[in-house]
Amino acid sequence: MMFDCVVIGGGVVGSAIAYGLVSHLDSVLMIDGRDSDPRAAQANFGLVWYQSKGVGMPAYQRLSRLAVEEWRSFSREIEETGGIPIEFAGQGGLTFCLGDQELEARQMILSRLAG
């Protein structure tokens, strides 16, 4: 069997790439490993947030903010297409500061990003 494209990995990134390709190609095959295989998706799935991302990297900060904004419409599209509720809340992340020194460091990072 022949395919226009083969995507290796069915995690968050591989699935997103395959999803985007199916509207442009006739046939896309996605190959994934076992559930026990180490993968980035295990650590990152659902972390659609931009708080404190991109300190010292304005382009990455802008890209993170745009990704969060686009995720809202993308999650609605996935819900409508697949009939599976995504239940995206978009309420941000949580950072624990263990002591005054960590809190002050965190405040400095957030001030740099806001500025």
Rank of each mutant, 00 (worst) to 15 (best):
Y19F: 12
R112N: 11
Y60M: 01
W71L: 05
G33L: 12
S111L: 13
T95C: 03
M2K: 14
S52W: 07
S73N: 06
S52A: 12
P38C: 04
D35T: 14
Y60T: 03
P85M: 13
S52C: 12
A16G: 10
R72D: 00
M57E: 13
M30Y: 02
M57L: 10
E79C: 07
F96H: 12
V68W: 00
P85Q: 15
G9L: 02
R39S: 15
A40K: 02
A89V: 09
S52Q: 13
H24A: 11
L98A: 10
L29Q: 06
R62K: 14
K53W: 01
Y50F: 13
G46T: 01
P58W: 03
D4A: 05
V22C: 12
W49H: 15
G56S: 02
V12P: 07
A40C: 12
R106F: 15
L94H: 01
G82L: 12
P85K: 15
S64E: 05
D100Y: 11
G92Q: 04
F45Y: 13
W49C: 11
C5F: 08
L66S: 05
R65L: 00
G54V: 00
N44H: 14
A59T: 14
S15Y: 04
A105T: 10
G115P: 07
V13C: 00
L25I: 05
C97L: 03
S52V: 14
V48N: 03
G14A: 01
Q107E: 14
L103A: 15
G46E: 02
S75T: 09
R112T: 13
F96W: 12
G33P: 09
S23M: 07
G33Q: 08
I17C: 12
G93N: 10
S27F: 08
S23D: 15
R112P: 07
R39E: 08
G46A: 02
P58M: 01
C97T: 06
I86Y: 06
G115D: 15
L47T: 08
I31F: 06
Y60A: 02
V12G: 04
V55K: 13
V28H: 08
G99N: 06
P58G: 09
V6N: 07
D35V: 14
I31H: 02
L103S: 11
T95Q: 10
L103R: 14
M2G: 15
A43D: 03
